[in-house]
């Protein structure tokens, strides 16, 4: 995803002189293709995220569209007040890009796990929060965020994510993308975990369970119409995210359902729930959180028969 992003940004910067890229001394072997082509619109600000956001805001107040790049929590939490006051309060076109959000930096440990970032970012005024599900969505989301005036957050995996969309979908900020039709259960996934959700749907199909799959690349503003549509047709809605369910997609969907007139589907939220002290690779941590395809399929099948054990594996 990070390579797709940088390639997309290079193409966009070729057309649009306003595009700048700042990084917080991270992105080695990734950002060079931008910095070598657009050296006057690229700055490594050093290990200083607060200043990175402030400088980006100053550039944006002078007419630039500024992408700021770092990994996991660093461009979100270390500089949260700068995002809130300097960027969101002023409604500036500064786009925060976090690479390796979720669990891909697994063995680096909890300091490098971006699993509360959606919760934080979606509370900020004017902020558009986007977590693409595959490289195709990443490319489209990068262009859409550039075209959108105002703050944005692009939450990316790391690298090597499989391509889900065989052709370019009609990508619009704030709109869900339907990947599979099926009314026995509606799976809504955001971010790079989308691949596991699609595989889980395949596993469920083999058991005769027809699972619909929605990719929800935009979490703020949420496509509430799509959520309500599938919640009307299916008895169970399942959210899947590489993030804590608290404040993330799970909460966003729960807020939507709770405010809608009933009756509507039950909700199963699947996200990161285990202790921050568990050590392991991204794949291992996905499994431990019940977020790999096999566990997801199992949890969904159990939830459909009303089994109480539908909560995360520990």
């Amino acid at each position: 995803m990070r390579n797709t992003f940088v390639n997309a940004l290079c193409d966009l910067a070729e057309q649009d002189e306003r595009v700048w890229l700042l990084c917080g001394d991270l992105g080695y072997s990734v950002l060079e293709r931008f910095s070598s082509r657009f050296p006057r619109r690229y700055i490594n600000v050093g290990v200083a995220e607060q200043n990175m956001v402030g400088v980006a805001a100053g550039l944006a107040l002078s007419g630039k569209v500024v992408f700021i790049y770092s990994i996991a929590n660093f461009p979100v939490m270390r500089c949260l007040e700068q995002l809130r006051n300097d960027v969101c309060y002023h409604n500036l076109s500064v786009k925060t890009v976090a690479v390796g959000a979720g669990l891909p930096y697994g063995t680096h440990g909890y300091t490098h796990h971006g699993i509360e970032d959606i919760a934080v970012m979606r509370t900020l005024p004017n902020m558009t929060v986007v977590a693409p599900g595959d490289p195709v969505e990443t490319r489209l989301a990068t262009a859409a965020l550039l075209a959108h005036e105002g703050p944005g957050y692009l939450r990316l995996g790391k690298g090597g994510e499989p391509t889900i969309h065989q052709s370019a979908p009609d990508f619009q900020l704030g709109q869900a993308l339907t990947l599979r039709e099926g009314d026995d259960v509606a799976i809504i996934a955001t971010g790079a975990i989308l691949a596991e959700a699609v595989k889980a749907a395949d596993l469920l199909a083999a058991q005769g369970i027809r699972a619909g799959v929605l990719s929800m690349p935009t979490i703020q503003p949420l496509d509430t119409a799509a959520v309500l549509r599938v919640a009307e047709r299916s008895p169970l809605v399942v959210t899947v995210e590489e993030h804590r369910p608290v404040g993330g997609l799970g909460s966003a969907v729960a807020e939507t359902l709770a405010c809608a007139p009933g009756p509507h589907a039950r909700l199963l939220t699947c996200g990161v729930t285990i202790s921050p002290s568990v050590v392991g690779s991204g794949a291992y941590l996905r499994e431990r959180n019940g977020l790999d395809a096999a566990h997801l399929a199992q949890r969904i099948a159990q939830a459909l028969v009303g089994a109480p054990s539908a909560q995360p594996v520990r």
Binding site: I43, N51, V53, V55, A56, G58, L59, L61, S62, Q82
Partner: peptide
């Protein structure tokens, strides 16, 4: 920081 961005 914002002033530095404006100056840049």
């Amino acid at each position: 920081p914002v002033g530095a961005g404006m100056a840049l």
